[in-house]
């Protein structure tokens, strides 16, 4: 059984599928509006259950020597469908954003100037990004105007602004750490001491202080070493920091992940069976 299109009939099929999907979506929206709430809920619950069942069944069904079962070939079309749903959501988001800001500009609402900036940036970036993608696929000419404009918009504006925005967090962390990191209990003291050891131990300065200034051994512990020798060999800040991360942090993280995993499983089952409130 194959789920792939025959290359000879590809374009015919593509048009048929696009047209079919268009009719289906256009028909589905009025159908959902016409249906009574109970019928609407039954439709959404049914589709959610079948979609979840497909992926669960594909995962749990026995596989042959090629690690495939009867549902495995359908994974690829399912991925295409997920991409389509994602694209539809992106389209809806774009429509909503443009509509809202166009309204702001037309009605000259408060701070409508920002909406103009957003719309101009959106259209300009979208235009050059689409042109650049087409040029990469050799479907459009790659002119110096495109190269310079895309570099200016993407490399020198978007990337820099994004990086700068995120970098500001460092300043807030510094200010927050100074104001909030206070020793008010034994737990807070342990946390602060541990954080300081790890913060210094993981950077080169920790190695410099431990091995160059204080003379601790940077070499691994020799085989058959006594407890005291082991202790002396592992007093350097980088080794203590690594011990904290691997021997204290890892077990705690594992315990948290078990809890999160079980919680996630319960939530997934509730979503699959539409037991969550507000599903329809």
């Amino acid at each position: 059984m194959t789920w792939q299109l025959n290359p000879q009939d590809q374009w015919l099929w593509i048009w048929a599928i696009v047209l079919g999907a268009f009719v289906l979506v256009l028909g589905l929206i009025p159908l959902l509006q016409v249906l009574p709430p109970r019928g609407r809920r039954a439709l959404v619950v049914g589709i959610t259950f079948l979609a979840g069942l497909f992926f669960a069944a594909e995962f749990f069904m026995p596989v042959n020597e090629e690690q495939k079962n009867m549902l495995t070939p359908a994974i690829q079309p399912a991925q295409n469908l997920l991409q389509l749903i994602g694209a539809l959501a992106l389209g809806l988001g774009t429509y909503g954003l443009v509509r809202l800001h166009l309204k702001n500009v037309v009605q000259k609402r408060t701070q409508w100037g920002y909406s103009v900036v957003l719309l101009v940036s959106f259209v300009t970036m979208a235009f050059f990004s689409i042109w650049n993608t087409l040029a990469e696929k050799e479907l459009a000419p790659k002119t110096p105007l495109l190269e310079n404009s895309f570099k200016l918009l993407f490399d020198f504006t978007l990337v820099q602004l994004d990086a700068a925005m995120f970098s500001l967090i460092a300043f807030y962390i510094f200010s927050a750490a100074y104001r909030a990191f206070r020793i008010r209990s034994i737990e807070a003291s342990i946390l602060m001491f541990t954080a300081m050891v790890v913060m210094i131990g993981v950077v080169p300065l920790g190695a410099y202080i431990s091995y160059d200034l204080m003379g601790f051994s940077a070499e691994p512990t020799p085989e058959g070493a006594s407890f005291v020798q082991m202790l002396v060999h592992n007093l350097g800040l980088p080794k203590v920091a690594n011990w904290i991360l691997t021997s204290l942090n890892a077990p705690a993280q594992r315990a948290i992940e078990f809890g999160v995993g079980i919680g996630g499983l319960a939530m997934a089952i509730r979503l699959w069976l539409s037991l969550e409130r507000g599903i329809t």
């Binding site: 962390i173 750490a177 206070r182 913060m199």
Partner: peptide
């Protein structure tokens, strides 16, 4: 930067 943050946490305390 780590040293500066640690120094100021200590000073705050």
């Amino acid at each position: 930067s780590h040293v500066l943050i640690i120094t100021f946490i200590l000073l705050g305390n």
